[in-house]
């Protein structure tokens, strides 16, 4: 099976790589350098790393000031503190003037585990997607995290990069192409389209394996950019398969599922089902237990696939 690797470590490695070949990269954190792992960058490039203390609002506006002056900024903290706590600072100081600040949020989603609801950010994608000029990236594994961070540095405008706390299965390869705004088709099939983001992309692949045993041939798409979403790919595979399931470790409102359903309803309304957190706050537990309890599993995706295929009807034109 897949190797499990840390997205945070990948982020740290990408930062060090960037720091060693360019002088314009600046990294900020808010008393979490050892958790978000910017400490690796800090050890190598101490002058280019600023620990702003537990003052995230201040950090985001300082990031804006640095970016406005010419730095390529990475501002990193936990997803709760990187979004809802600083929404106004991101809106006013960063997104409105379209500055090159990359917000790298770790510890997103329910898989934070034991820390519980206060730290399990499940609304961040919705918040960031609603901001004009903001690009929202949810890498599925460690390799894709590295590519996303390296692509973001020269991207025009702010990005929000969402990472998890725990290790996740590495489902992409070194040579898998990555482009901001472009989905990756992991597997092609004619019967149903499964679209996953972040940790749920691997669950979609597992679900496709299960479906194959029933002779159901699934397309699996890793949607690593939620905004701007790759409409072309969504429409293409919705057309080819006529049924769609989305899966995300995020509130069912305002994330991948909402985005895909907007694309479908305006372009090619096919039956679809969204897997996600049903508009509630999380709770303590270990990651696997929580994924199980809230239905973020391949079994649930398989069930949803049966459901949408039934609604579509077996006979297709």
């Amino acid at each position: 099976m897949w190797k499990k690797e840390s997205q945070r470590t990948a982020f740290a490695e990408a930062l060090v790589e960037l720091g060693s070949r360019r002088k314009d990269v600046v990294v900020l954190t808010a008393d979490l350098s050892s958790s978000v792992k910017t400490n690796k960058f800090a050890a190598r490039f101490p002058e280019h790393h600023f620990n702003i203390g537990i003052s995230e609002q201040n950090m985001m506006s300082i990031a804006a000031g640095l970016a406005g002056s010419g730095s390529r900024v990475f501002a990193s903290t936990f997803a709760v503190f990187a979004t809802s706590r600083v929404y106004d600072q991101i809106r006013q100081s960063i997104a409105w003037p379209k500055l090159n600040v990359n917000i790298v949020a770790t510890h997103a989603g329910i898989t934070v585990g034991g820390d519980g609801a206060s730290h399990q950010m499940l609304e961040d994608i919705a918040l960031m997607c609603s901001l004009p000029n903001m690009t929202v990236i949810v890498p599925c594994d460690a390799l894709e995290t590295k590519k996303a961070v390296k692509s973001a540095v020269d991207y025009n405008g702010p990005t929000y990069i969402r990472l998890g706390r725990s290790e996740v299965p590495t489902i992409t390869k070194e040579k898998t192409p990555f482009k901001i705004g472009k989905a990756t088709v992991m597997k092609k099939g004619k019967d149903i389209t499964l679209i996953g983001t972040g940790i749920m992309a691997s669950q979609c692949l597992l679900a496709a394996d299960e479906l194959e045993k029933e002779k159901i041939d699934a397309t699996v798409i890793n949607m690593s950019t939620i905004k701007p979403v790759d409409k072309k790919t969504v429409i293409k595979y919705a057309k080819e398969t006529g049924a769609v399931v989305t899966a995300e470790e995020h509130n069912i409102i305002g994330g991948l599922g909402s985005t895909v359903s907007s694309v479908l309803s305006e372009n090619i309304p096919v039956p679809m089902k969204r897997i996600g957190i049903p508009d509630i706050f999380g709770e303590s537990g270990n990651s696997e237990e929580l994924m199980e309890k809230y239905g973020l599993t391949s079994e649930n995706i398989v069930k949803a696939a049966h459901d949408v295929m039934k609604r579509r009807g077996v006979e297709r034109t």
């Binding site: 804006a64 406005g68 106004d88």
Partner: peptide, 25 residues
Amino acid sequence: IEASTGSEGQGLSIGIGASLYAKLN
């Protein structure tokens, strides 16, 4: 215009960013 402002309380932090940039470079 060096910064987009209007939501009170943010300009000083933005200024610190510009000031750190000067020191760094």
